[in-house]
Design a protein around this nucleic acid. Structure first.
Length: 422
DNA sequence: TCTGGGGTCCTAGGACCC
DNA sequence: TCTGGGGTCCTAGGACCC
């Protein structure tokens, strides 16, 4: 008997998080936008019912928003991250093993509970009571099947948010109802290929010959088939994996025309990346800078520049990272004379990350050339707020900064954001 | 006419996830 | 006018080695 795995996820998480602090949002259409107020990345059920699609650009939604009084929010990741942490705390009261999969999803070890459905229902009520967001739970023998169960529970109110599909007979009965494209790990490309073979449901994929699955979609697809058969191939893992890379990339509020502006954005991104490195106690071995024009504008000249550089010694020092980023940006800058580009996105990526204490040593290196300065920088920005102290090359105009015209208060992490009650 | 056989490491690109 | 950001894993193919 394999161990039952549960996956718990939050319905429309970002919307649910906004609703905690503003009850007037209940029962009305609400959407949360991506960075730069670009497109809808979370929609309430009411917004979905209006036909608002995941990833739909805001500028195509203006009419619907006006006609139906859709409430619109910019992303408030500080708030969502904190709510997510609180939800995990509740899960930890209901199982000794929690694997955080994403900001709104956790795998839970549900082995050993006599009545898993009752246990899940109790947990669900507790999350709602203590944090205020609704969650759904799918339980099955493998992660892929648990995701299916969760998906079925999401779409069929009859399950009241909890479906235990551990029983193989129940799985066999339900899998024919799951479209193959809804399965975890099956994306658009694979759906196309499977369609050609006449495979359109989870049950049909489960019955696909393993060799054929591997030929079509490598070991990844083969594992999915095995998981659908109830054989675990994706291990439950509650230790945080060593991260391999990190990126800070942003679209700009308006096009960046000259090197100085692009470099201001890149300075800000490299600065943020260095902060993240130090927070996690890591150093980076490679830095990549990229920037590109708006691909949706066929009428404007297109350019995409990118350069990487090894960091030796490995570093988490803002000054060193920004210096390396500048060399990359200069090397990647277009060489064509008299051609002006409107760059709309820029980013800094760091790879070959290692814990500070594991970094290779050389005779003269130090993890940060200016460790005392970095400590002071982090202390000031933590005490007085982000961006209190920045490098001059980040500039003061911030003309590249992204839009966020509908941001809600950071209710749980910033006292000055709280509404004043008189 | 004959033209090895493994290894390892690295990189670019594809596919997918939320 | 306006179209997100941050990750992971896998494979193929080239370079290089003995």
């Amino acid at each position: 008997m394999t161990k039952p795995i549960a996956i718990s996820d939050s319905a429309n998480f970002y919307v649910s998080a906004e609703r905690i602090f503003d009850p007037t949002l209940k029962g009305v259409p609400v959407i949360v936008l991506s960075n730069n107020d670009g497109c809808a990345v979370a929609r309430s059920d009411e917004a979905k019912a209006l036909g608002i699609k995941m990833g739909e650009p805001l500028h195509l939604l203006r009419d619907k928003i006006a006609a139906h009084g859709v409430k619109v929010f910019s992303s408030n990741y500080t708030l969502y991250g904190d709510i997510s942490r609180r939800v995990v705390e509740v899960y930890e009261d209901y199982t000794p093993k929690v694997e955080i999969y994403s900001i709104d999803e956790c795998f839970l070890d549900f082995s050993g509970f006599r009545d898993r459905v009752t246990h899940a229902r109790t947990m669900r009520r507790d999350v709602l009571r203590r944090v205020g967001v609704p969650v759904r739970v799918g339980i099955a023998a493998t992660k892929t099947l648990a995701k299916c169960a969760n998906d079925i529970a999401k779409k069929n109110p009859i399950f009241a948010g909890v479906l235990d599909m551990t029983d193989p007979a129940l799985a066999a009965w339900l899998l024919p109802l799951v479209p193959v494209g809804d399965i975890w790990g099956i994306g658009r490309r694979t759906v196309k290929k499977l369609e050609g073979l006449g495979i359109s449901t989870a049950a049909e994929l489960r019955d696909m010959p393993l060799r054929q699955a591997r030929a079509l979609g490598t070991v990844v697809l083969e594992r999915t088939v095995l998981e659908l058969q109830g054989e675990p191939c994706i291990a439950f893992d509650d230790v945080e994996p060593q991260r391999k890379g990190m990126a800070v990339t942003r679209s700009s509020g308006k096009p960046m025309e000259d090197f100085d502006t692009v470099f201001q954005a890149i300075t800000a991104h490299a600065t943020r990346a260095a902060e993240k490195l130090r927070q996690h106690g890591l150093v980076a071995g490679t830095l990549t800078v990229f920037f590109h024009t708006n691909r949706h504008r066929a009428d404007r000249p297109q350019y995409a520049g990118s350069r990487s550089k090894r960091l030796t010694p490995m570093s988490s020092d803002t000054l060193e990272l920004v210096a390396a980023a500048k060399r990359c940006a200069l090397a990647a800058w277009p060489k064509i004379e008299n051609q002006s580009y409107g760059f709309t996105k820029a980013g800094v990526m760091l790879d070959d990350l290692l814990p500070l204490e594991d970094r290779p040593r050389t005779l003269f290196d130090a993890p940060q050339r200016s460790p005392v300065l970095m400590t002071a920088l982090d202390a000031v920005n933590s005490r007085f707020g982000k961006k209190t102290m920045v490098l001059a090359s980040e500039g003061m105009s911030r003309s590249w900064q992204l839009r966020a015209n509908h941001r809600s208060p950071r209710y749980t992490t910033r006292i000055s954001d709280l509404p004043v009650v008189r």
